[in-house]
Nucleic acid binder design. Structure first.
Lengths: 115, 115
DNA sequence: ACCGTAGTACGTCGGTTATCGTACTAGCGC
DNA sequence: GCGCTAGTACGATAACCGACGTACTACGGT
């Protein structure tokens, strides 16, 4: 089972991903923004934590990415000095079909309604 | 705009319903259970707070129903000594199409996966 | 008028969260 | 090796949250 060494981060197995945790992870504006950004990337593409400019400190950024990873929403891997992130689309779509898309669509509608 | 008198509870207008607040409201197991219960009722049917047996104190129950109401997930109205609840299906489906159904479906799958 | 049922208000308590700053480590390129 | 960039670890802090108990109100029935 998922073992975390120095440069090997701990991710929940698909079976261990809890809906409540996913919803909670998505219920923070900052994290929803991260997810929206990752979802906007070309399929399979990944991005560094620094690729999106949240307006908070580095440590806060680290924190939000960790919450997303521990909830099972994203995968994080080290690549050289960067830590790359991508959505766990396949896992999430299998576990909770339509959830990610529906939430992203809801988010889009909300911001089109002039946030 | 929504005015709350003694027996008239305060509900957010549809435009004021925030996705983050809805997701947060749904991210608690107790509240998700309430929503699942209300969603299982025949269309337009409503239920008293006491109709579902959460295993917590009355005050905690009140608390969770209030969070759901303030997030815009449910409507609460007083009917005699009871306080009746129902899902704001129409509003939610208009604002965030498919969201409620997708979350409920995800919840069903999760509990079928042997909770 | 009294009682029972349904739910509220309020204060508390312990745990979690979001934020920060500071000090640190890991890898890359020169 | 040096320094830059990217991110971590840790500790602090303030806010929030879920749970509780107790004391209360409101309504309906007898």
């Amino acid at each position: 089972m998922s073992l975390a060494t120095a440069r090997n981060l701990d991710h929940p197995e698909p079976e261990a991903i809890r809906l409540e945790a996913v919803l909670h992870a998505l219920s923070d504006p900052m994290r929803l923004r991260i997810v929206r950004f990752l979802a906007s990337l070309p399929l399979g593409e990944e991005a560094a934590c620094s690729a999106i400019d949240l307006v908070v400190s580095k440590s806060t950024t680290t924190h939000h990415f960790r919450v997303l990873r521990e909830a099972g929403v994203i995968v994080q891997v080290y690549r050289g000095t960067a830590k790359m992130n991508r959505l766990r689309r396949e896992d999430l779509d299998t576990l909770f079909p339509g959830l990610v898309d529906t939430v992203l669509d809801a988010d889009t509608r909300q911001r089109e309604r002039a946030d």
